[in-house]
């Protein structure tokens, strides 16, 4: 039993170890899909008052695996292909190590199902808009047409590279076919450029937000503006060079080493190390504790209302 738990001798017909492309794997995938769909429709017919118990139960079981993985002693320097676990504690620890991967993958499978739901929502909203000829319905039409074209050519290109190009000829642009050119034009030529354009807009938004934030309205805003000014000036190479030269001159003429503390780089470094980093760490402590409390409440089904209902 322990050997089985520790996967010391993995059975030859282990689902997780099927070779790609074998009938066993395909049957396993199809079987899992059918069982998944049956479960999906079965669960959706359950009365609402019982759903909460099912959700809480599933959440607890899934969370328990990860909690145990964190707390349960992990076998030290073990290779259970060659050795046997010493005791039940070690056997269970080894089993947990193996179980984590399939459990984590279950979340990916669920996410894949939900992605379909997301696309369905997107299509429903925009098709309705087109059907009703709602305001700006033309944008909805563009979205649907471009989604469909991108999906077709993306899949076509992927299929060619994955299955019809054993000698990897398509890595060179000279051997490209129609689908590869179209996919490249759509993805690199259009999507990536629009993505970069959207990202570059942030620079202008930073400017307008900074203008509003750094107006001297209160003591706090003044302190923030002064700190920001020092940090920004510190990034200007010519200015820091001139400032350091001036400070060094003062130190030499007066012999007062204390003045080196007023070097722009030193002041900016002090602000970062003694103001910014401690504040961020304090915030992160709070966020971490909040996330732990939230996770604990969800895991133990203690929350009422909102997501838990």
């Amino acid at each position: 039993m322990l050997q089985f738990l520790a996967q010391a001798t993995p059975p030859e017909t282990n689902f997780w170890q099927q070779a790609p492309g074998t009938t066993g794997l395909i049957l396993g995938v199809v079987g899992a899909f059918i069982i998944g769909m049956l479960l999906f429709f079965g669960l959706s017919t359950i009365p609402t008052q019982f759903r909460r118990y099912i959700i809480v139960g599933f959440t607890f079981l899934a969370g328990l695996v990860f909690v145990l993985q964190y707390l349960w002693p992990r076998p030290i320097n073990a290779d259970f292909e060659k050795e046997l676990p010493r005791n039940a504690v070690e056997g269970f620890g080894a089993w947990l190590g193996v179980a984590i991967d399939p459990v984590a993958k279950t979340a990916n499978i669920l996410a894949a199902f939900l992605l379909g739901l997301g696309i369905f929502s997107l299509m429903r909203v925009h098709i309705n808009k087109i059907r009703r000829r709602a305001q700006d319905w033309g944008f909805s039409l563009i979205l649907i047409v471009s989604s469909v074209i991108m999906a077709i050519f993306g899949f076509w290109d992927w299929n060619m590279r994955q299955f019809n190009d054993p000698e990897a000829l398509l890595t060179s642009q000279e051997n490209w076919k129609f689908a590869n050119y179209v996919n490249d034009a759509l993805f690199d030529g259009m999507y990536q450029q629009m993505d970069a354009a959207m990202f570059s807009m942030i620079a202008f938004f930073i400017l307008s937000a900074a203008y509003r934030a750094f107006r001297i309205r209160s003591v706090e805003a003044t302190v923030m503006m002064a700190s920001a000014l020092i940090l920004m000036l510190n990034l200007m190479g010519a200015l820091t060079f001139m400032w350091s030269g001036w400070i060094n001159g003062l130190v030499e003429s007066t012999g007062n080493q204390f003045l080196t503390n007023f070097d722009l780089t030193v002041v900016a470094g002090w602000l970062r190390a003694n103001m910014q980093i401690p504040a961020i760490r304090a915030i992160e402590f709070g966020v971490g504790l909040g996330a732990l409390a939230m996770g604990l409440r969800l895991w133990l089904g203690l929350e009422k209302g909102g997501v838990s209902s």
Partner: peptide, 24 residues
Amino acid sequence: TQSTQTPFFIAACDYVLIGDEFYA
């Protein structure tokens, strides 16, 4: 909850929940 984004929100928004205020 991203400490790197909180300053942007402080600069641009009317009200900001900082750190664990979000969880509170």
